[in-house]
Simulated scan of single mutants.
Amino acid sequence: MSTPPIPGRVAVVTGASSGIGAATARALAAVGYTVALLARRIDRIEALARELGNGSIAIRADVTDRDQLVAAARRVQDELGGADVLMNNAGVMLLGPFSSKRRDDYRTMVEANLLGAITATEVFLDQLTSGSGGDLINISSVAGRTARATNGVYAATKWGINGWSESLRQELLPDVRVTLIEPGVVDTELPSHITDEATREAVQKGYDVATVTPEDVAEVIAFVLARPRHLAINEVLLRPADQLG
C-alpha cells in the first residue's frame, strides 16, 4: 500500500508516546507531514520528535485537561501554522468485572477515551476548518461494535466515539473528513494498564496469540489521509486475520 508524499501539512497526534500514536506519527512524517506529538510522557515524545525531524514538536498534554489542550493548540498555531489533521488516539483499556471497586477506572476511561477526544476536537476544530480541508481521525475499537463480559465501560466509551463520529461526519462535511478506525487486537501496551490482575492475565494471553502491529494500523491511516479530497473513507474495521470476534 503506497502513500504519495504530502509535504507541508501538519498532523496533531494525541497519545503519541507509544503504540498506534507513535507508529502513525512515524508513518505521516515519512510522507512529509510535520507532526505535533501530544502525550503525558514528555521524555518519550521529545525523543520521537527528534527522530521525526521536519519541524515536529513534542507537547506535554493530558487530554483530560482542557487547559493543557488549549495551550497545545496555541503552540501548534503559533509554531506550525495550525493543524490539518487531528488524530484522537489517547485512551486506556481498564477491563475487569463490573464492581464499585473499579469506579475510578470507569471515570478514567470515560474522561480519557470519550471526553478527551471530544475536548481535543473542540479545541482544534477552528484549525481544522480554516485551511484547504481538514481530517479528523478517531481511534475506536472492535469493542465499539461488540461488547463482552468485563469490557462494558470500555465498550461504552467506544460506542460513544462511534456515534459521535458519525454525527460529526454529517455536521462537518465537506470541510473536514471524519474517519473512524476500529482495530481489533493490536500489539500495544494497553493490557499492561489493566488493574484487575486476573483480567489482565487473561487479556494478555489473547494478545500473545493474535495481534496486528501498530505499524499495520498506521499504514491504513496514512492511506486514508492520502486519498483525494473528493473521497472520504469514513470507517475502517481491521482485525488480525485469525481474530474471531
Rank of each mutant, 00 (worst) to 15 (best):
L52Y: 05
G53F: 14
F124H: 00
T121N: 07
D208M: 08
S167K: 15
D104C: 15
G21V: 01
I181V: 15
P4A: 07
A49E: 04
V85Y: 00
V70G: 06
G133E: 11
R75M: 02
R26Q: 06
D216F: 11
I20H: 06
K205N: 08
L168R: 06
N162H: 14
G116F: 09
V236P: 01
E46Q: 12
P174I: 10
E166S: 06
H193E: 14
A112R: 08
E235G: 02
V63A: 06
Y106H: 15
A58F: 05
G152N: 09
A36T: 03
T146E: 15
N89H: 11
I6W: 03
I161V: 15
V224H: 01
A27G: 04
R177A: 03
A29R: 00
E122R: 14
P5L: 13
R102Q: 15
M109L: 13
L94A: 13
S56W: 02
V142M: 13
E79D: 14
H193F: 05
G82E: 00
T195P: 07
I57L: 04
E189C: 11
P4T: 07
P5M: 09
T108S: 13
R227Y: 10
F223W: 08
T119L: 11
L115Y: 07
A30G: 04
A27S: 03
G53I: 05
Q204L: 13
F98V: 14
R169G: 10
A147D: 10
R60F: 04
L115Q: 10
L168F: 11
L238P: 02
L172I: 04
V153L: 11
G55A: 02
A202L: 14
N151L: 10
Q243V: 06
M1R: 14
I118P: 07
D105A: 12
S56L: 01
A22R: 01
R9K: 13
S18H: 08
V217N: 02
V63M: 06
A147I: 14
L238Q: 06
A226C: 08
P5N: 09
P7G: 02
R50I: 09
G91I: 12
G144V: 13
M1G: 14
A71T: 09
A58Y: 05
E201Q: 12
E46F: 11
V92N: 15
W159E: 10
T150G: 11
G160E: 09
G53Y: 15
A72P: 02
R169M: 08
A198K: 13
R200C: 04
M93R: 10
T146C: 08
I20V: 09
V123A: 05
T3W: 01
F124Y: 02
L128F: 01
I221K: 01
G206Q: 08
V203W: 03
A47K: 05
P214H: 04
N89F: 03
E111A: 12
L168G: 07
L38Q: 02
L94N: 12
A232L: 12
N234Q: 14
N151I: 12
V220T: 04
P5G: 06
I42Q: 11
A47G: 04
A30I: 00
L180I: 12
E51T: 08
G53T: 05
A23R: 00
V92T: 15
D175F: 08
A36W: 00
A117Y: 09
D84G: 00
T188L: 09
I42R: 08
A39I: 04
T3M: 07
N89A: 09
S56A: 01
R40P: 02
V70M: 06
D126I: 07
R148C: 13
T157L: 15
P183M: 12
